[in-house]
Design a protein around this nucleic acid. Structure first.
Lengths: 170, 170
DNA sequence: TTGGAATGTCAACAAGGCTGACATATGATG
DNA sequence: CATCATATGTCAGCCTTGTTGACATTCCAA
């Protein structure tokens, strides 16, 4: 696809010409925005000798309490060795509790402890404040569009996981 | 900020209630979408023994040919040692050319070689295809909103760099 | 001439990915 | 019951990419 090519999008009354330049701008916006997106939690985590991997685990355990290790692996898209290293630290530090499954005793079900929930709140508050501020600056119609494009950008299996989680939670 | 709190956004005729739950969904959408966003270039890079760091350097050198190392450092937000390792590999492999500055000979100006441009195209084509597809699925109004929210999510200095680059390029 | 800026480079280290191999406990199935 | 598959944990080793600190070089500018 050589530079200069265009794609057209028809939508209602609007007609959008998508030049390569516009697509590049979207790519760069995504890159810079993701930095902002992670910046606040990163600062908090740095003081605690944790990283983004710990944040992600905490986030999804909070999101789906009692989730199994396998389920978490699928969501995070990492190997079990990588996740295990993170979980071991969180369990040792008393932020996560691992309970043997009742129906299937091979499974470990993961829960945040009170301390885990406290850290989750700190991280989540910071990240939501940024998200809320961005939403407010951009306005409600922009928010709907933002969500639509993000969803369309996911791989199919991630979109399925995302939608399931979105609709499953209150 | 406890769970259950709401923020309100007023925009035109619309009124959007931003529950913590909605903000969390936005956070998760961002996480999963970023994975999709990087997935295609990552696959290409894996075959070449390069990583995302190389991609980012190639991207911005292509974007602003003749940029200095310092300028690139500011855009990428990494240390010079980290960038230098990446640049050294790219220069050794003949993808990037480093020219001593004419007015200030301390500066190195960076350019893609023909081979570098070829790889840039491969990576960019893949990433733009994903972006174009997402834009097409979501529609033109969604795209405008997407860009607005992303921009509002950036740190102030990154937003400045982004806008400068966006408006500077054709 | 001297100080500071821009750059490059070396060493060491850490986080967090990966693969491969292996152990254990348990469920499921013939 | 025997066997195979599944879920998990763990060890060892490797890679990329980030970090700090130290130091050399080059060269502009006061």
């Amino acid at each position: 696809m050589a530079d200069g090519r265009m794609a057209q999008i028809y939508g209602g009354e609007n007609l959008l010409f998508l030049t390569d330049e516009q697509l590049r701008q979207g790519i760069e916006a995504m890159f810079f925005a993701y930095r902002g997106f992670t910046a606040d939690p990163d600062r908090i985590l740095a003081d605690l000798a944790y990283g983004r991997a710990h944040h992600r685990a905490i986030h999804f355990i909070n999101r789906a309490p009692g989730t199994t290790v396998n389920n978490l692996l699928a969501l995070l898209g990492v190997t079990k060795q990588s996740l295990n290293r993170v979980l071991r630290a969180l369990i040792a530090d008393g932020l996560v509790e691992s309970r043997v499954g009742t129906s299937d005793k091979r499974e470990r079900h993961l829960y945040l402890t009170d301390a885990g929930r406290a850290l989750e709140s700190r991280l989540s508050d910071a990240q939501r404040a940024r998200m809320r501020s961005a939403y407010r600056d951009a306005g409600p119609e922009a928010v709907a569009g933002f969500r639509q494009v993000l969803e369309a950008m996911m791989d199919a299996d991630m979109r399925r996981a995302y939608v399931r989680m979105r609709d499953g939670a209150a």
